[in-house]
Simulated scan of single mutants.
Amino acid sequence: MKYTIKALAIISIFVFCHYVMRQFWGEGWSSWLSELDNLTGILFTPAKYTFLYGPLVIAAIILFKQSKPFESIGLNSSGFINYALAAIICCTPMAIGYGFLSDELNLSIPAIITGSVYAGFFEELIFRAALFGVLFKYCRWGFVPAALISSVIFGLGHIYQGNDAISALMAVAITTVAGTWFAWLYCECGYRIWFPMWMHIFMNAAYGIFGMSGGAVGDLQGNLFKATAIVLSIVYVEMLIRRGKQREITLSKLFQCTKNGLYTQQANLN
């Protein structure tokens, strides 16, 4: 029963943050922060993320206290550099492909920070760790229901990338699948946000730097190069498993997890 209560609490707090906290943000904060960072979003973006979703992160830490600080929200520092290097390798073919397809180059530092770094960090922290991770790892939900809740909401957040009803639905569908893939990476890489975060950052950065069109849906050639990053990330995880890391997502965990000691804490990165 305690898991059900905590799950309902986390979902309720997320809904409150996602829909109600926006009403308290106010135009005054937006104008002041935008003027302070000269409309770059460098200060505005992290301030808004923190304001809107801070209560969710704090609640996850309080409700699911762990032996290591911030472990409940996937911020265990172990593997930070290794996962960054792995993500660079996985995303390099995609970036090279985008370079061949594109005839423009956008090296705006503020755009990279706000569109890639902030998006990768905060979205993985909020959707993968504080929402999906808590429901799956601590509340014993199965992977499918936990991933669906977080990934569908994540997908709906990208509906603006569609130019019409069909493309909007496709954007939601594709980003929902992407959210599920990020959730799988989160689980298989020690329940830490680092690998999905780096993948998220580098993929967004490549997309923005080379001005790829089509939003989340993309075009055929662009999607083929994007697929290389996804495939290589899966190969990387399978390599970790072959080297001794326990597989986290199995058939027994797809719809319900009920046993104590079900989850391992660390990925083997040696």
Rank of each mutant, 00 (worst) to 15 (best):
M1T: 03
K2T: 15
K2F: 09
I5T: 15
I5S: 15
I10S: 07
I10D: 08
I11K: 06
S12M: 12
F14W: 13
H18W: 14
V20P: 01
F24W: 14
E27R: 10
G28W: 06
G28P: 01
S30Q: 01
W32R: 13
L33C: 01
E35P: 00
N38R: 04
N38D: 11
N38Q: 12
I42D: 00
F44A: 10
P46S: 03
A47C: 05
Y49A: 07
T50N: 08
F51S: 11
G54A: 05
L56W: 06
I58K: 09
I62L: 15
F64Y: 04
S77A: 00
S78E: 15
S78Q: 12
F80W: 14
N82E: 04
A84C: 13
L85C: 15
I89P: 09
C91H: 05
C91S: 11
T92N: 02
P93A: 13
P93I: 04
A95H: 07
A95S: 09
G97R: 13
Y98E: 04
Y98V: 05
G99D: 14
L101V: 11
S102D: 06
D103T: 04
E104C: 03
L107K: 01
P110D: 01
T114E: 00
G115F: 14
G115L: 11
V117K: 02
G120V: 14
A129L: 13
V134P: 01
F143L: 06
P145R: 08
P145H: 13
V152I: 15
I153R: 04
F154K: 02
F154W: 14
F154T: 14
G155A: 12
G155K: 10
L156Y: 08
L156F: 13
H158K: 07
I159W: 12
I159G: 06
Y160T: 12
Q161S: 13
A165V: 04
M170V: 05
V177L: 15
A178T: 13
W181H: 04
F182I: 02
W184S: 07
W184A: 11
L185F: 01
Y186K: 00
C189D: 14
G190R: 03
I193Q: 05
P196S: 00
H200R: 06
H200S: 06
F210K: 03
M212Q: 07
S213C: 01
G214M: 08
V217Y: 10
D219M: 03
L220M: 03
N223M: 07
L224R: 06
I230F: 10
V231P: 11
V231D: 09
L232Q: 11
I234C: 05
V237R: 06
M239H: 11
R243P: 02
R243L: 04
G244D: 05
G244H: 05
K245N: 12
R247I: 02
L251Q: 08
L251V: 02
K253V: 10
K253M: 03
L254V: 07
T258P: 00
G261V: 04
G261Q: 01
Y263W: 13
N268H: 09
N268E: 12
N270E: 11
